[in-house]
Structure formats: structure tokens, C-alpha cells
């Protein structure tokens, strides 16, 4: 399991929409917020890469979410697994600047 602490920047007049969106996900908790300035800190629990990736896709496709960025990660369990198995776990954190070059 990994735990991420991430920051959402959103359009202030869409606060209720954002709350509705976040409430759909059991693995996201709102840790702190500044409604007036459109900032929110969330924590995300993820068992595997696709958990976070799917969330990011949703957030990045949301017009009223201006930015979504990770600040801190906990990966202690993954270190244990890596040391025990000799395999580096393959969880994805989506690139902050994804690129679409191909026509």
C-alpha cells in the first residue's frame, strides 16, 4: 500500500461539485481545505498503481479542477516487499506533465 498526500486546486464556485466527486471514492479523504481560495489537501490510499492512475484521470478531466499535485508519499510497505522479494513494485504515479505527441 502507498499513501499519498496531494493538493487539489479548484474553481471556488465548484466546491460542492468537488465534494460530490470526492465522496464517490472511499480511498480519498479530505484532510484540509481553503474553500475561499480553491485549495484542498487530500490523502489517497492505493493498493496498486491503477487506483491512483484512475483517480488522476478523473481529476485531470474535470474542468473545475485547475491542478492536482502530489506532495508526499509513504511507501514503507513497498520497501519491505522489495527487500523480501527482490522485486521493485510497479505502482504508477501519473506524470505531472503527460505528453501527447503522436498525431
Amino acid at each position: 500500500m502507498i499513501i499519498a498526500a496531494s493538493i487539489l486546486y479548484f474553481e471556488v464556485n465548484h466546491y460542492d461539485d468537488l465534494i460530490s466527486l470526492i465522496n464517490k471514492y472511499k480511498n480519498i479523504e479530505i484532510a484540509n481545505e481553503d474553500k475561499d481560495n480553491g485549495k484542498m489537501v487530500v490523502t489517497i490510499e492505493a493498493e496498486n498503481n491503477s487506483d491512483i492512475e484512475k483517480l488522476e484521470e478523473v481529476f485531470h478531466n474535470c474542468d473545475y479542477i485547475i491542478d492536482f499535485t502530489h506532495h508526499a508519499f509513504y511507501f514503507g510497505d513497498e520497501v519491505e516487499k522489495a527487500e523480501l522479494t527482490g522485486v521493485i513494485p510497479d505502482f504508477d504515479i501519473k506524470k505531472p506533465f503527460s505528453k501527447k505527441r503522436i498525431l
Binding site: I7, E45, A72
Partner: peptide
């Protein structure tokens, strides 16, 4: 863990 990381993220966001 979540609390610890979130506090740091809040500081980063100026919250």
C-alpha cells in the same frame, strides 16, 4: 501516516 503527510501537504499549499 495520513495525518503526518497531510499536515505537510497543507503547509505546502499554504493552508
Amino acid at each position: 501516516i495520513k495525518t503526518t503527510l497531510a499536515a505537510s501537504a497543507a503547509a505546502a499549499a499554504g493552508l
